[in-house]
Amino acid sequence: MPKDARNQSPELDPVIHPINRLRICATLYSAGATDDRQMKYSTLAELTGLPADTLSKQLKHLEGCGYISRAREYGSTRAKDTVWVTLTEAGAQAYVQHVEALKAMTEGL
């Protein structure tokens, strides 16, 4: 291994790094809510412990970066709508790389 390669640590993803976004990505990833599988917004809010306004703001940012996608299933009233959240393939890859970078940092690489 070249000397320079040992001194380079994997990069943290600045999109995922803030704790609330990391919590969201970790929850979706660990639940398997990627590409073909989805998680209800209400379930995601419950599992992350984030208030609705915070969760919505963070999802908007993640969606703008292409890391998650959202779909709305319309009910008879807006209160009965269901929002589904999915970690995209790009989001899942970014999350895995971010976790690997954190592991490398903690192992002193």
Rank of each mutant, 00 (worst) to 15 (best):
T54C: 03
L102I: 14
M105I: 09
L55A: 11
A104Q: 08
P2C: 06
I24F: 04
A5P: 00
H61W: 02
S9F: 05
E63Q: 14
R21V: 07
T54Y: 08
S56R: 12
R6G: 01
K57Y: 06
T27M: 06
S42Y: 01
N20S: 11
G49Q: 12
R37N: 12
I16P: 08
P2S: 14
V83T: 10
A26I: 01
L12E: 11
E100D: 11
R72E: 12
D35E: 15
D53L: 02
Q93A: 12
H17P: 01
L28F: 02
K3P: 06
K3H: 10
E46P: 00
M105N: 02
K60G: 04
C25A: 15
E63K: 13
I24S: 02
A92W: 00
M105E: 06
M105H: 09
V15D: 13
K103E: 12
M105Q: 09
G108H: 03
Q58D: 14
S56L: 08
Y67A: 02
T106A: 04
L102R: 15
S30C: 05
D81R: 05
G32Y: 01
A94R: 10
A31V: 00
L44M: 07
A90R: 11
H98V: 08
Q58W: 03
L59R: 02
D36Q: 08
P10A: 11
Y95W: 14
D13M: 04
T88P: 06
G91I: 13
A90I: 12
L87C: 07
T88V: 09
L22V: 04
L87H: 07
P2I: 10
M1R: 03
T43H: 09
A71K: 09
V85P: 07
Y67R: 11
W84A: 03
L22H: 13
T34E: 08
T34L: 05
H17Q: 13
A71L: 10
G108P: 08
Q8C: 03
L28N: 01
T43A: 15
K40E: 14
T77W: 07
R37C: 11
L22W: 12
R6I: 10
Y74D: 01
N20Y: 08
Y67V: 06
K3G: 02
M1Q: 04
